[in-house]
Simulated scan of single mutants.
Amino acid sequence: MTANEDQEMELEALRSIYEGDDCFKELSSVSFQFRIGDVDDTKSFLLEVSWPENYPDTAPHISLDTFFNNKISPETKQYIISKMSEQVEANLGAAMMYTLFEWAKENQETLMENHQPVTTAVTLISNSDVMNNSSSVSKKKKEKKEQLTKSQKRKLIGRTDNKGELPRGWNWIDVIKHVSNLYLRYNIQWPQ
């Protein structure tokens, strides 16, 4: 079989295995992402794997440079990639994506054992920026939201539709009632 036929067969197998799995994402026919761990887990990471033209005879390119992995230190990323590369070397020449993904899932704790979440970078700002920001914060705190009574809230809820929006013309006045009040107020006779 040629490399392209092997790739097509493996792609078809991956699609059927991971159909409906939110951990697997096919970026293109030769590029994939696989999340190891739950989204809210601090020790989860996202593998991005792309196939070169001669895959599976040539090793796939494995990357951890996605935004999802921005809290992982460069040392931990390098350790994960080196361990994944060992698995690639052991499976070279055969379809290995499923094997790599499952190995990473099984060894997540080992791969992330030295993981210390990276703190975000600190930016230097001037004192004038601090003063401007603090004055704008104090202005925001002074603005209070209008407080409604219970009866006002009930009336407001009674007027809204299923989307929480007021219907068109909810605050329009009754034209006839308004005109008749004007006639009464100013003692004007109705036209004949």
Rank of each mutant, 00 (worst) to 15 (best):
N107E: 03
L11Y: 08
S138I: 05
N133T: 10
K144H: 05
W172V: 01
N4A: 06
E113Q: 13
E102W: 07
K144D: 09
M1D: 13
W190K: 12
K77F: 11
N133K: 12
P52H: 12
L166F: 13
M96A: 06
Q116A: 02
S180G: 02
D174A: 05
N181M: 01
M9W: 11
G20L: 02
K77D: 03
E26C: 04
N162K: 00
F32N: 05
G20S: 06
E8Y: 04
S180I: 10
L182H: 06
N181I: 05
S138G: 03
K177I: 15
V179W: 06
K142V: 15
N69G: 04
N91L: 11
W103F: 14
F34L: 08
N162S: 01
N91W: 11
K177S: 15
E143C: 01
E146G: 02
E143T: 09
E26L: 10
E106L: 01
A90Q: 10
G20N: 11
P191I: 02
V137P: 07
K77L: 09
Q108N: 10
Y186R: 05
N107V: 00
K163G: 01
L184D: 14
T66M: 10
F101H: 08
E165D: 03
N69P: 07
N91S: 04
E48Q: 11
T123I: 12
E8K: 10
W170Y: 13
S135L: 15
M1Q: 14
V179S: 03
T120N: 15
Q78V: 07
D22G: 00
S138Q: 13
P167W: 05
K105V: 09
C23Q: 12
N69Q: 11
E143Q: 02
I72P: 05
I17D: 08
L124H: 07
E26K: 03
E10W: 03
E53G: 09
A95I: 00
P74F: 06
M112K: 05
L166I: 08
L64Y: 10
R168V: 01
A3T: 13
F34W: 15
I17F: 11
L46F: 05
N107D: 06
T66N: 07
D40I: 13
D6G: 12
D161C: 00
Y18W: 07
A121W: 03
E48V: 09
D40F: 06
W51M: 08
Q78K: 14
Y183T: 05
I176H: 06
E10S: 00
Y183W: 09
I62S: 08
F67A: 03
V130C: 03
K155C: 03
D40P: 00
Q192C: 04
R154D: 13
K71W: 04
Q189R: 11
N162R: 07
Q116R: 11
E10I: 01
A95K: 00
P117T: 04
A13E: 14
T123Q: 03
M96F: 07
E106Q: 12
I125T: 09
N70V: 00
D161E: 08
S134E: 12
V137L: 15
W172P: 00
E146P: 06
S135M: 14
D22L: 15
E48F: 02
L64H: 06
K71S: 12
R185F: 11
V39R: 02
T76P: 00
P117M: 04
L11P: 00
E19N: 10
I36N: 01
D129I: 08
Q147R: 14
S180R: 10
Q152D: 13
S31D: 14
